[in-house]
Amino acid sequence: MKIVRWSLLLLTTLVAACRHQPKPLSFYYWKTQFTLNDYERSVLKNNGVKSLYVRYFDVDLKPEDNQPSPVSPVHLDTAMQGYRIIPVVFIRNRTFERLQPADIPTLAQHVFALVAQINQSQHIATTEIQFDCDWTERTRDKFFQFIQQYRAITSQTISSTIRLHQIKYKDKTGVPPVDYGVLMYYNMGAISGDNTNSIYERSVASRYNTYIKTYPLPMDVALPIFSWGQTIRNGKVVELLNKTNITQFENDSNFTRLNKTRFITKHACFNGGYYFKEKDEIKLEQVSADDLLDITTQINQNTNHRIGKLIFYDLDSTNLVQYEKDIFKKVLNHFN
């Protein structure tokens, strides 16, 4: 059954490639309240987006708990009707660190039931699911067993995100028993406050590129369009500033610009819901349009044209406005 499904996917990909048709494009939706503003709607329409990967909830096994529980389930609204929705469930790796193997079937059932309940709230049906877990050598067996348990409950297509280190060290971290993987082509550097970009850094990517070709799963690829900041205090990163960009700081007289991507706090203050101490440095990271094209080149060179579709992370007008409107088409055209 699995082989048939893989072959179908491969076939579809091949046929699409032969005809030089543009590949499909999709987005991750990662906020807890699903709602689309006009700008987001227009981007989806202009790029012919049919499917969306929507984060449904996280699963975590908190230190004070004995059993895993869902975290912040999404609140859907009617805006998502009209799109094919692929639920994404993020499972914190520490869940599998402590979860007993005997409790894995229950977790699979809980996840399945909660996805169904969320679907029911908007009267939609989904036929696919994606699991996002930064699994490691230590947790791989339990994560893979979880996927198998999930498969025992439903015949839905199951995919999983794959991080670059999991590609490179596949002998140690294993290959998950899923129908396809989504290669997360970002978050490759350490968040160290140094001068490299932790979202995308070409030199870091090159350490992993050669391993992509031989990874034994059909693959989609996820590309970063988000930006964030880091607060650096006494040389250490002390906070991540989610959805933060340069304009927030360049118009605030409490900050002095050090260079293209860095500011220093002149006077302690609040900005964007965060507090900055005097002398805190802020490093802002984003991926430029040129970087996105460069990433596409890397993928073209290293993947044997085996990538199914591009999925951008994440759909949010605060990210989208950082780029020209035609960026997604440009990237797609550059992609072969």
Binding site: Y28, W30, Q33, V71, F90, R92, F226, V238, E239, N242
Partner: peptide
């Protein structure tokens, strides 16, 4: 709060 840090970012709690 509508935004959420989870898989695609690294939680600040870890760093702290």
């Amino acid at each position: 709060l509508t935004t959420l840090i989870s898989s695609f970012t690294v939680g600040t709690g870890i760093i702290l």
